[in-house]
């Protein structure tokens, strides 16, 4: 299964500066981000602080600010920035011919034990 990519649809379904969600049955919901620079990232949709839905935060640069307590989370590494400490899992993502793909094993591998 290594390297198998899951097609989650065209890039234009997420407007720049926004994120949308992808629930995973039996696993963790994923947030897919489209930055103002037209880059795409995917994270587990849970702030490492108090599990706030990162998909609902304000996106600036490659950072999302959690809507619950304004932690800044790197979209690239999932790590909390500044003085805060914590990390949320990232999901490898690629964009090919206008479509977004997530690494399948990272998506389904996030199953709760």
């Amino acid at each position: 299964m290594i390297g198998e990519w899951l097609d989650i649809g065209p890039v234009d379904q997420i407007a720049p500066g926004n994120a949308r969600t992808l629930p995973v049955r039996g696993g963790e919901e994923i947030a897919v981000f489209h930055t103002l620079d037209n880059r795409f990232f995917a994270l587990v949709n849970k702030c490492p602080h108090k599990q706030g839905p990162l998909s609902q935060g304000i996106v600036h640069g490659n950072v999302v600010t959690c809507p619950l307590h304004s932690w800044n989370i790197s979209l690239k590494t999932g790590e909390a920035l500044g003085d805060d400490k914590g990390c949320v899992p990232t999901i490898p993502l690629k964009v090919d011919a206008g479509r977004i793909y997530l690494l399948r094993e990272a998506v389904v591998g996030k199953k709760a034990a």
Partner: peptide
């Protein structure tokens, strides 16, 4: 409408 909708749902 997209602000309220999931992209899709993954059902392994």
């Amino acid at each position: 409408a997209q602000l309220h909708q999931h992209l899709a749902e993954v059902r392994p």
